[in-house]
Amino acid sequence: MRFAPRCPACNLDFDSFNVGDGAAAFLTLGIGTIITILGIVVELTFEPAWWVHVALWLPLTIVAVLGTTRWTKAALAALEYRNNAGEGRIERRP
């Protein structure tokens, strides 16, 4: 998922942001933890067949990660803008 090159309302240059794939990795780890806990609870409570786990958790994981990637990338870009973050800059304080 990519940003538009510029904001249509204020003409802010989105190409200057370096969000990358950090959002997807963060979401995969976070949502993967939640899905794993839910899978363990379902297994210990209901003891379903293995294919029930595949049918439940695989689509849920994919939908959850893809559904929240846009929001997370936007939040990372907003934090980068607010904090005036940039790559490779070190400010020395006296």
Results as ranks from 00 to 15, higher is better:
T68D: 05
V65M: 04
F26T: 15
P59L: 04
R70S: 14
W51P: 03
L27I: 09
L56K: 00
A64G: 04
A74T: 11
T45I: 05
A24W: 04
G39D: 06
R70A: 14
I31L: 07
V54W: 05
T72C: 13
W50F: 15
A49L: 13
G32S: 05
I62N: 00
A25E: 08
A74D: 12
A74S: 15
T33S: 10
L56R: 00
V52H: 07
L38F: 07
P59G: 06
L29M: 11
R70F: 08
A25G: 13
T69Q: 12
P59Q: 06
L27C: 11
I35N: 03
L66R: 15
F26N: 02
F26H: 08
I34T: 13
L66K: 15
V65W: 04
V42T: 06
I35L: 13
W50R: 11
A24N: 09
W57P: 14
I37E: 00
A55N: 06
T68R: 04
P59W: 02
K73M: 05
F46P: 01
E47V: 07
T68M: 09
A23T: 14
A64Q: 06
V41A: 14
L38P: 01
I40D: 02
W50M: 10
T36W: 00
G32D: 05
T33A: 12
G39W: 01
T28E: 03
V52R: 04
E47C: 04
I34F: 08
V63E: 12
V41Y: 07
W71C: 14
L29T: 10
T68P: 04
T68H: 09
T69L: 15
L44W: 11
A74M: 10
T68K: 06
I40N: 03
L58T: 12
L56M: 14
T33G: 09
W51N: 09
K73Q: 07
A25M: 10
F26A: 15
H53G: 09
W57K: 04
L60K: 01
L56H: 00
G39R: 01
L29G: 08
T68A: 13
I31G: 02
T45H: 03
A49T: 13
R70V: 13
W50P: 06
I40V: 12
W50K: 10
L38H: 07
V41Q: 04
E43N: 14
L56A: 05
L27S: 05
